[in-house]
């Protein structure tokens, strides 16, 4: 008898792991306006999935490798003043397209593509769970270690330099963490919805927070509620789990936005 024998328990733990890692990182994605960057990295990782399957490697390793390459490329190019919007659009969707084409070449292997596009949290096994929590702990540790430096670099690169912080190194830390989150989140929400797990909880947390730390903590809480609520909802309505989790997060965001909008209209006096 073990609590991990229950697939719902494993699913809930996997989702919580992703929510925990995505929260602080997602805050930086929002603050630094890197939303599309997260999207691009996630979309590219499907190519990694295809490569991993064709070379008989672990899907996690393949996705991580391609996500790393993608994130680093984008990060380097953005420093050189390219038209980022266009470039990201080209790279993200090309990588996704190549990934999908590559998957179609795989004969003999029966792949449920949907599982990678939208996640398959109910099929999370013990090994997956270990990988997800390993990645989550790594990301949380990395981001907490660099937290102050990351925040300073996010505020202003020159301010960071004057404090002896290299903003490019901090950008690299974020890039690495992003690749790890993408790789561990594939199983949970799938490549198409990873960016939502990064962005929606921090966006919903913003009106409650007065400090960056509070925003990260509240994001984690909202992410956790979304995961548990989504799992429950998927069970009740027999809907796909990954999208249901994102739907719950989106509904929370909507409720918070409407609520704080009404309060601002009524209050007027309170500081924002």
């Amino acid at each position: 008898m073990n609590i991990l024998d229950n697939f719902m328990t494993r699913a809930a733990l996997a989702g919580l792991g992703v929510a925990l890692a995505a929260a602080p990182l997602g805050c930086f994605v929002v603050w630094r306006r890197m939303a599309y960057f997260g999207d691009a990295t996630a979309h590219a990782s499907i190519l990694g999935v295809a490569l991993a399957l064709s070379f008989n490697m672990s899907v996690f390793a393949g996705a991580l490798a391609v996500a790393l390459v993608m994130a680093t490329t984008v990060s380097v190019l953005s420093g050189r003043g390219f038209a980022m919007d266009t470039l990201l659009g080209v790279m993200a969707h090309s990588a996704l397209a190549f990934g999908l084409v590559a998957v179609s070449f795989l004969k003999g292997v029966r792949i449920d593509l949907m599982a990678y596009l939208f996640g398959d949290i109910l099929a999370v096994g013990r090994v997956d769970l270990a990988v997800i929590w390993g990645g989550a702990v790594l990301v949380v540790a990395l981001v907490s270690w660099r937290w102050s430096a990351l925040l300073t670099a996010t505020l202003n690169p020159d301010l960071a330099h004057a404090s002896g912080i290299d903003p490019r190194r901090e950008q690299l830390v974020l890039t690495l963490a992003l690749a790890v989150v993408v790789a561990v989140a594939i199983k949970v929400v799938g490549v198409l919805l990873i960016a939502a797990m990064l962005i929606v909880p921090p966006a919903a947390a913003r009106p409650f927070a007065r400090t960056p730390e509070a925003m990260a903590a509240i994001s984690a809480l909202i992410g956790a509620i979304s995961v548990l609520g989504g799992l429950q909802g998927a069970l009740m309505f027999d809907t796909p789990t990954g999208p249901t989790i994102v739907c719950v997060a989106a509904i929370l965001f909507l409720a918070v936005s409407v609520g704080s909008g009404l309060r601002n209209m009524a209050g007027q006096g309170g500081e924002k």
Binding site: A149, L151, T211, P212, A214, M215
Partner: peptide, 19 residues
């Protein structure tokens, strides 16, 4: 210094960065 509106930051917390 432009602080993104999505980044909540009190004066005290700002002064405590990075140390």
């Amino acid at each position: 210094l432009h602080i993104d509106p999505t980044l909540p930051m009190t004066v005290a917390r700002f002064l405590g960065l990075p140390k």
